[in-house]
Amino acid sequence: MATSLEFPIFAAPYLIVAADNLIEINDVDYWYDKRRAILSGIDMVIPRGKVVAIMGISGSGKTTLLRLIGGVMKARKGEVRVDGQLVSELDTAGIYKLRSRMGMLFQFGALFTDMTVFDNVAFQMREHTNLPERMIRDLVYLKLNAVGLRGAHRLMPSELSGGMARRVALARAIALDPMLMLYDEPFTGLDPISLGVIRNLIRRLNDALGATSIVVTHDVQEALELVDYVYYMSDGKIVAHGTPQEMLANDEPLVHQFVYGEADGPVPFQYPSRNYAEDLRMGARHG
């Protein structure tokens, strides 16, 4: 398993409990049905200020892990700590308090379709603060300016392109200067220009806000250019982790197939089926 020299704090995630880690996940299991685990034995630490990617093929448990961190679901076994707080022990009010310090960018933005761009970004400020409307206006313009869409504040979400919608959603997610940003497949369905813009914004906003970011993605090139560290998941387990360079050099077959986009390998091209020749013979018989 790869380790990092650049960020020694990652060296043995399951052993380290440091004040500098914003998130600590220890031996976490999750399942809907006990016979089929979604996550098993997950150990992970995410230090403050870093951008960390959780990668893996669809169905590997990435989004579930993100939901455990956001307190949407509770771990069946093990501990998820965010900023020192054990998420599974928080009540609804505690979870909401924690979430008010998080921002999340959803796969397709999830903008409120009945509100303008301005109202979308102002939503959290109006819900969680008693700021006067004049100050909210200034803050919204600041956030929209950061994503380059101050001029679009009057538009409705239906009038935005996919890339613009994602940027507005990003402005909304950073509305209250969160300590933790969660990105769920932020690059899906974007054109190359929008993709580059979003990638740069993730890094720039993370550094400017002094936040910590977790990017769940299967977009290899973008992720490896953007992040400080990568966890690779397969079948509910972490099978490798390291810096982007270490992941590129990783010879674990699963990681290699994923990073280089090979059609066949440990993840087979064919869905499990009977013998091909047998199926063809059956077809001939039916004919």
Binding site: G70, Y96, R99, F106, F108, F112, T113, L182
Partner: peptide
Amino acid sequence: GLMKATEQLSAMEMMAVD
């Protein structure tokens, strides 16, 4: 239903709004 399908309700929950 569409708010749920387009994750608007989840987004609201993640913004600590019930």
